[in-house]
Computed example of a mutant assay.
Amino acid sequence: MTATSPSLRSLSRRRLPAFAAALGALACAAAATLHAPPAQAQAPAVTGAGAWPQRPVRLVVGYAAGGATDVIARLVAVKLGERLGQPVVVDNRAGANSNVGAELVAKSPPDGYTLYVFTIANTINASLYGKLGYDPQKDFEPIGLIAKIPNILVVNNNLPVKSVADYIRFAKESKDGITFASSGSGSSIHLSGEMFKMQTKLNMLHVPYKGSAPAVTDLLGGQVQSMFDNTPSALPHVQGGRLRAIAITSAQRSPLLPDVPTVAESGFPGFDVQSWFGLAAPASTPKPIVERLNTELVKVLNAPDVRQRFQELAATPEPGTPEQMRSFATAEIQRWREVVKASGAKAE
């Protein structure tokens, strides 16, 4: 074994304290790193090179193509895509009264590339279904309301009814009351009738169908007597003289049917039931993306050509803030919970 010289041993003894101090400093630094709070992720840029979005955005609709929700979604998608500089592609995921599409979006990455057309159905479903695969309040980030569409109380032409007063009188005088059709149990069309029933205390028998089209077919044929149908569906039949419009469910009259009174002015102040549509993203979507989407959505809804197209669909644009949409949806959940409970409506 080679012996260490006295000079080397002396040098090592002099350096040991410094070496130990360096080790201690490194240990302290490592411990501080381990216990330091995690750095916050940098918010995504929404302007400039490399900003969101860098690829097409998917807009999920919880219904099949062709319905009011789909038509409105496609109109907004085209215009929103033009403003974002990337296509907004509609993805129809129908099923379980829009729950299939809602659950898909609720479980999607909150990166701004998957959006959802949140509707009145999602607030009704909160109490209509015993268990949902998503939470309509906690699992979505509201972006803004899009539009509202009123329903119309229509009757078969052979029914001796021309006003709400006539409708009430007929229902009271008939031993069987009066029948009203809907597009399905728990739909906004169904619950419009149930809310009217709650306020009038009438004997009204609900007849559910699998969709609005077969319900209207039987209404035209006289198998059922009345219906609180969505305006776009009922309007052609009213204008063609095949159905009689008794009242509209919005707070104001529709410019498309200026002679048809509202339910509110027909003796039921405060009655205001409309189908509505909003834009939402998965919860925890970065605030800059939500704010950019809201800004562009408001611009789209204020565009003259969009407002004109909405008027043709009997829809009223509802530009606003994410906070306004959140408050509105929360109030709707409570409102429909009471109606669902009173009506005994169950999911089909």
Rank of each mutant, 00 (worst) to 15 (best):
P150D: 07
V117W: 01
A171F: 02
G67L: 08
V207S: 05
I124D: 02
G270Q: 07
P37M: 02
L153C: 02
M1H: 14
V260E: 01
L145T: 03
M195Q: 13
G211L: 03
S5N: 11
I124C: 05
V90W: 04
M198A: 13
V273I: 15
A283R: 07
A18K: 12
L153T: 01
V298D: 09
P319F: 08
R9D: 11
S183K: 04
R14C: 07
A213L: 13
L8F: 12
R169H: 13
S327G: 11
N99W: 02
A147E: 00
A20W: 10
G320F: 07
A106R: 08
A171V: 04
S183T: 11
D166Y: 05
K299D: 10
P208Y: 05
L132Q: 14
F271P: 00
I168M: 11
L23R: 12
S275N: 14
Q311M: 12
P236I: 08
N122C: 08
V263M: 07
Q137E: 14
Y129W: 14
L145F: 08
F196N: 01
Q239A: 14
K299L: 10
A43V: 09
L80A: 03
A29M: 13
A280N: 00
G184C: 09
E141F: 03
A73H: 01
L80Y: 02
